[in-house]
Design a protein around this nucleic acid. Sequence first.
RNA 1: GUCCCCAUCGUCUAGUGGCCCAGGACCCCGGGUUCUCAGUCCGGUAACAGGGGUUCAAAUCCCCUUGGGGAUACCA
Length: 520
Amino acid sequence: MSVRTRFAPSPTGFLHIGGVRTALFNWLFARQLGGQFLLRIDDTDAGRNVQEALQPILDGFRWLGIDWDEGPEVGGPYGPYYQSQRLPQYQSAVKVLLEKGLAYRDFATPEELKAEREQAEKEKKAFLYSRKWMAETDEQAARFAAEGRQGVVRLKIPREGQCKFSDHVRGECVFEWSREQDHVIQRADGTCLYHLASVVDDFDFKISHVIRAEEHLSNTPRQIFILQGLGYPQPEYAHLPFVAEPGSHNKLSKRKIAQYLKNPEFKRLYDSGVEIMTRMGKGNLSADTFNPVIVDFYREVGYLPSAILNYLMLLGWSLDDKTEDLTVEEMIRHFTLARVTKAPASFDPKKLWSFQDRHMQKLDVKKKVAAMIPFLQAAKLLPQPVPCEVGPKLTRIIDAAGDRLKVMGDILNYSDFFFVKEEDFLYDETDFAKRVSPPQSKDLLEKFRAVLAGMQDFEVGPLEEALKKFIEAEHIKIGDIVHTLRVAVTGKSVGPGVYDCLALLGKVVCLKRIDKALAK
RNA sequence: GUCCCCAUCGUCUAGUGGCCCAGGACCCCGGGUUCUCAGUCCGGUAACAGGGGUUCAAAUCCCCUUGGGGAUACCA
């Protein structure tokens, strides 16, 4: 039988980082074994705008390179893949269970149930429904209905014995049937509940391995009861520990974003993203849709999908005692359920940052150029379409900026002065006051301007040579002139090497800006 | 409350009875290199939750305690 795994997002409007980790493990597992990975949409209670709320999730997966063989937008032989469109399948499964006596119609009111529950609590006993309003025959049902009661369908869970199953992460699991409730599988209005739907879907989609978050571990017995009742084969199970909040073992939640922003490291990551967005004129952001718990954040700011995947993979999984960096191909090759950790792992923004850093360092310049152009365009530093001479120039700029570019959006921090029109060129006032304003700085700048003006070959090598000669002649240290020079031509004190800046700016622009600085 | 799961540096982890007075990575702290920043190089701090067993030997096995999480919904 071929390996088939699935991930079942509900259309919430955004892709959560913890969900990606679960999806990633499913995807890696299927890809390694040459199987299929599919997406099923849990939209049973979402109502309208499903498509709208689903789009960011699909976009997120596509951006990350997690592709699905069956599901929304790609279809597949076992569809529909939306739970909201599968009610007939669920209802016929309920009918089978009813016919086999493995489920029953129940007419208890919520109040009656609540009373039983409270009674059990008072006696410090585990609650177990008395089945007082259980209708096993049509007559009983009719009698209850005549009283105006609404009927639901419940599972008739055995009250003795054990449910045993094996889990790839947890090992052998044993649960007492007597601890299970007679869970409702169908509401009075005929709609069905998650556990039933999930089991039916997994069977219809021929899912071989159910790889999901550990919160479903204790739901597994009731699902096994359903699938056995339906005569389905049992899939393999693997329950993954969840991704926890930064610095705690609580499950990472999209609702607690405000709280996470109080974490300094999380905040820093967030702020760096906001800064880049602001430069692109997208500054008015809501933390509900733009923050480091949501995948869109990383796409917008220009992270590398491979870095995120690499980080997420090592959250609850390891290859050995030293391997950290893996390409996507290596992830697929090495992944194994047996090496998944049992304890929850907390999300560490700084560590993610360090993966991004290393993946970026290994990335080919050509790819950086292609990826950074849209950022420059969004910040209105480059026109659309891009003039052909920009390619080589941008390549040199990116080379010069080197490892300073941590994310694609960083190009805006290191290259604006290369692209800005002369009339829009501005100085950072603090840097200018410190590095250019002092009279001795201006003197040196003026003298060095003359040297630059006399140069023919305005390239890195000759520029460096000229500057070295200059400091020797003036009996100064390199630091006495280089900072002044940098601020004069780039407007700020931080950036690529000065010789690179000078050469890339070109003689005309450099002289113009030095004059502007001297006149200021 | 009841049932189930989990527990190694601040964080992610290696460790499946002797190779571990516990290894790697991130962070942090020193120092070298460099025109700034970034990077890079060298070095450092830092953990087996606690208590009982079992064993010649325990981070590793067992029990208890503690702490955290999950399930107990006509949520998914």
